[in-house]
C-alpha cells in the first residue's frame, strides 16, 4: 500500500487519490497513537483531524526522503504534543507525573477503567509527554529506534535513555498500584 501511495504522490494530479488511500490505510492507526497520547476521545478526534489537514497541506512537499508512515507519525505526534502543551498552558498543569490526568482518564466515558489493561494506560498517562510518545511508539507501535528517531527528530541514544526511564516509571506505578 505504501508503495502504491508513494507512486501516486509523484504526480500532483493524483494527490487527492493518494490522500484517500492515506486516510483509509492510516487513520485508525494514527487515531490510536494519538489517543494514547491525549487520552480523551474528543481530543484525539480533534488532533486526528488537524493531523490530516496538515497532511493535505503538505502532501505536495512530501519528497519520499522518509518512509510515508514515519512522516505521518511525525505529523500526528507533533500535533498531539502541541495539543498537550496547549492544554497544559490552559490549565497550568505541571510536566511530571500527573494524577489529575489519570483521574480525568478514569472519568472518560470512552475509557473502560475496569478493564485489566486500564492500569497500564493510567501509568502511561502519568509520563511526561515526550516520554509518553517514546513509550507508545516503542511498546505499542513496535517501531525501531531509527524510525522513532525520524518521527521524534531525536537521536537514537536519547530515545533509548528516554524509553528506559519511561519503563522504570511505568513499572514503579504498576508495582505500587496493584
Amino acid at each position: 500500500m505504501e508503495d502504491e501511495i508513494q507512486l501516486l504522490l509523484q504526480n500532483k494530479a493524483n494527490h487527492r487519490q493518494a490522500f484517500d488511500k492515506i486516510v483509509k490505510a492510516y487513520s485508525e492507526r494514527l487515531y490510536w497513537h494519538i489517543r494514547r497520547m491525549v487520552h480523551s476521545h474528543d481530543d484525539a478526534d480533534d488532533v486526528l483531524q488537524n493531523t490530516y489537514i496538515k497532511v493535505w497541506r503538505n502532501i505536495a512537499s512530501y519528497r519520499g526522503d522518509s518512509k510515508l508512515y514515519t512522516w505521518l507519525y511525525r505529523i500526528a505526534t507533533n500535533e498531539a504534543l502541541n495539543h498537550i502543551r496547549q492544554q497544559k498552558r490552559l490549565y497550568k498543569v505541571g510536566d511530571d507525573v500527573d494524577p489529575e490526568n489519570q483521574a480525568s482518564l478514569s472519568g472518560d466515558a470512552y475509557f473502560d477503567g475496569e478493564a485489566a489493561e486500564a492500569k497500564l494506560h493510567l501509568a502511561i498517562q502519568g509520563l511526561p509527554e515526550k516520554q509518553r510518545a517514546v513509550f507508545n511508539l516503542k511498546y505499542f507501535e513496535e517501531m525501531k529506534y531509527e524510525e522513532m528517531s525520524e518521527v521524534l527528530e531525536t537521536s537514537v541514544g536519547a530515545l533509548k535513555a528516554s524509553y528506559h526511564h519511561a519503563v522504570q516509571k511505568v513499572k514503579h506505578y504498576l508495582e505500587n498500584n496493584e
Partner: peptide, 17 residues
C-alpha cells in the same frame, strides 16, 4: 536496553470509540 512485558495484550485497549 529496558525490557517491558505487560501481562495483557497490546491489542486489548481500555479506550473505546
Amino acid at each position: 536496553m529496558s525490557e517491558f512485558n505487560h501481562p495483557y495484550s497490546k491489542k486489548d485497549s481500555p479506550y473505546k470509540v
